[in-house]
Design a protein around this nucleic acid. Structure first.
Lengths: 206, 206, 206, 206
DNA sequence: CATGAATGAGCTTTCATTCAT
DNA sequence: AATGAATGAAAGCTCATTCAT
C-alpha cells in the first residue's frame, strides 16, 4: 500500500513535469521564447505558478531540456533504421543516415520551428553533438570503421563528419521551412552529390 | 555662415547617431540583445533616453543596421583584394574570396560574436545577399562568368554558391571563436579541399 | 480549517481591492483622472504596482466601476425611501424621487466632484440609465403606471423622463457645487415648478 | 515701406497663429485632447515645435481659445438671424433663437464632436455663458424686455433662462450626435413644447 | 508537495519643454 | 521670430520570483 501510494505520487510528479514540458514545447513552437512567460506555460499546463519552480530553474532550462530530448530521439530513430537496413557501402550509409534524420524533420517541422523560434541553432547543435558522442551508437567510430572497410581513408575523419553535419543542418533548415534556396526534395540531390564529392576525397586509389 | 552653422548641427547629429551605433555594437557583442536595454545603450552613448528614439525605432532596428553595415564592409573589402590580385582560375577565385572574408573575421572576432549573440545567421545571410546583389560586384554573376570561362558548368549555380557560403559560415564560426573542431588555420585546408571537391562536380570533361 | 484559511485569503483580497477602489476614489475627487497615475493609486492604497493589475485592467476600468457603484447606490436608496412613503400622486412621486437623489448628492458632494473631475457625465449617465432600467424598481415602467393611474398620458414618456433627468443633472450639479445660478435650496423650487410644468403637458382633460 | 514690412510680419504671425488654431481644431475633433500632442499640432500646422510656445502656453490654452471662439460665433450668428426676422411674440423669440443655434450645430457637428472629444461641457458651458453675458446682444436683458412687453413676469428670469439653456444643451448634444433618445428632428418638438411649458409659468393672467 | 497572491525591479515609449543656433 | 535637436521625467505595464498558507 505504502509503495503504491508513493509510486502514485511519483507518477503524479512525472505527469506534472511532462505537462510543463509539453506545454512549453507547444508555446515555443508558436512564439519566440522571450514572448513566452512562465505564466503562459503554467496556465497551459494547468498547474500553479510556484509549481514550475519545483521542477525547473527557469524557462531557458526547460528549453534546453526539450532540445536535448528531441535531438536524442532524432538520432536514436535514425540509427535504428540504419541497423534494420543492411547497407554496406560507405557513402550510402552516411547518406542514408542523413536522409533518415531529414525525413523525420520534414515530417515534424514543429521541431525545426521550435529551433527557429528560439533562434537556437547553437544550442541545438551542441545537444546534437552530445547526442552523437554519447549514444550507444558511436557515429564517429562507425563512420571510421565503415570508411576503412570500404577503402576510404581520412586524415581527420571527425572533421569531415562535422563539416557534413553542419552543411546539412544549416542548409536543410531553410530548405524544409522556407523552401530556400529550393524545396527540400529538389535540394536533396544537390546536397547529397556535394556530400559524396566531399567523401570521395578520402577514396584510396587501388 | 548659415551653411557652416547648419552643417555643424548635421555633423553633431551624425556623431550622436554614431555614438549610439557604436555603443549598441559594443553591448551587443557582450550580451544577448534581449539583455541589452535601450537604457544601457543611451547610458553608454552618453545621450538622453529620448534621443535614442529620435534616431531609431527600437533596438532591433539598430541591430539590423549594424549587421547590414558590417556585412557590407566585409564583402567590399574582400572584393577590393580580389581585384588587386589577378586571379583567373575559377576555384582559386572562389577560395580567395572566402579566405579574404575569413581573414577579416579572424582579425575581428567581435563581428562574429555579435552575430552569435544575436543568433541571426538568417539575418546576416539576408543582408549578405542584399550586399551581394546590390554591390557593383555581383557575386553570383561573376561566379557564373568565371565558371564558364574556365570550363565549369552547374545546373544550379546559385544553390552551389549558397551551399558553400553556409558550409563556410556555420563551420568557421566555431572554428574561429572556439577552435572547434579545429583552429581556423588547421581547419581551412580541409574546408578548402571540400569546397574544391564540391566545385569540381561542375568541371566539364574536355 | 481549510475553509477558514481560504476564506481568510479571499477576505484579504477583498480588502486589497477595496483599498484600491477607495484610494482611487479619493484621488479622482482631487485630481482629473489623467493626472492620477497608477503609481499614485497603489502608493495611496499601500500595495505594490503589480497588484493593481491583478485586480484591474487600467485606471479607466477602476473609474467605471466606481461610477457604476455610486450610481447604483444612489438610486437604490432613493427607491427605498419612495417605498417607505406612500405617495400616490404622479407629479409628487417624480419630484419626491428626484429630491431624494438630490439630498444624497448634497450630503455627499464628493460624488459630484468625482464626476466633474473625471468629466464623465456621459459615463455616469449611462450607468444611471442602466440602474434605472435594471433595478428591481423599474423607473420607466412605474413612471408610466402612475401616470396612467393619475390621468396623465404621454406620447413619448421615456423621452419626457430623460429630459427631466438631464435637466436636473446638468443644473443641480452647478447648483450644489458652486451655488450657480442659485444655491440648491433656492434653486429647487424653480426646478420643481419647471418639472411640474413639463409633466402637466401630459395631463388629460377630464 | 517700413509700415508695410511690419504689417507683413504681423500678418505672417497671424497666419501662423491661425494655422496652429486650425490644426488643433481638426485634431481635437478626431482625438481626445490627451491623445493629441503638441508635436501633432505643429506638424499639422507646418511650423516648428518651439513656435507653438511663442503663441500658446500649452495645448489646453489652445483648446479654451477654440471653444470661446466657436461659442461666440454661434451666438453672434443666431442673434443676427433674430434681428433679421421681426418676431415679436415672447415664446417664439426664445424658441427661434434656440432653434438657430441648434441648426448651426446640426450643420456643423464638428463643434459638438470637438466638445465631446474633449469632454468639455463644463468649459464649453462657461464660455457660452461668458458669450451670452458679454455679447453686444445682451440675451438676459432682451429676454426680460420681450417678456414684459408680452405680459410675462418671472421672479427669477435669469434662472429660467439658464435652466432652458442647460436643458437644451445637455439633451440636444446626444440627440444630434447619437440620435439619443431621438433624432434631433423628432426630439425638437418635444423639447420646444417643454420649453414653452416652462415659459408659460410666467404668463400673467390678464 | 502544491498553490497563487503579492511583489517591485525593470522594461519600452512618450512628450512637454528648453535653448543654442 | 523661428527653429528643431535634445532632454529626462514619468507614464503604463510585464513578469520572474518568493513565500505564507
Amino acid at each position: 500500500m505504502v509503495i503504491s501510494m508513493k509510486s502514485k505520487i511519483i507518477e503524479n510528479k512525472k505527469i506534472k513535469e511532462n505537462n510543463l514540458l509539453q506545454a512549453a514545447f507547444n508555446l515555443f513552437t508558436k512564439e519566440d521564447i522571450t514572448n513566452v512567460s512562465v505564466n503562459d506555460i503554467v496556465k497551459s499546463a494547468g498547474v500553479a505558478k510556484g509549481t514550475f519552480y519545483l521542477y525547473f530553474k527557469d524557462k531557458y532550462q526547460i528549453r534546453d531540456i526539450l532540445i536535448q530530448k528531441e535531438a536524442h530521439r532524432l538520432f536514436e530513430e535514425a540509427h535504428k533504421q540504419l541497423e534494420k537496413n543492411d547497407i554496406r557501402n560507405f557513402e550510402d550509409s552516411v547518406i542514408f543516415l542523413i536522409n533518415q534524420v531529414l525525413i523525420r524533420l520534414e515530417n515534424n517541422p514543429l521541431i525545426l520551428k521550435f529551433v527557429e523560434r528560439n533562434l537556437s541553432w547553437g544550442v541545438f547543435h551542441a545537444q546534437l553533438n552530445t547526442a552523437i558522442d554519447n549514444d550507444s551508437f558511436n557515429l564517429i567510430k562507425e563512420f571510421n570503421e565503415i570508411a576503412t572497410a570500404n577503402g576510404y581513408e581520412f586524415e581527420n575523419s571527425e572533421v569531415i563528419l562535422y563539416l557534413i553535419v553542419e552543411l546539412t543542418g544549416s542548409t536543410c533548415y531553410n530548405s524544409i521551412l522556407h523552401s530556400q534556396p529550393l524545396p527540400i526534395e529538389e535540394y536533396k540531390p544537390i546536397l547529397f552529390d556535394s556530400i559524396r564529392a566531399i567523401l570521395s576525397q578520402g577514396k584510396k586509389k587501388s
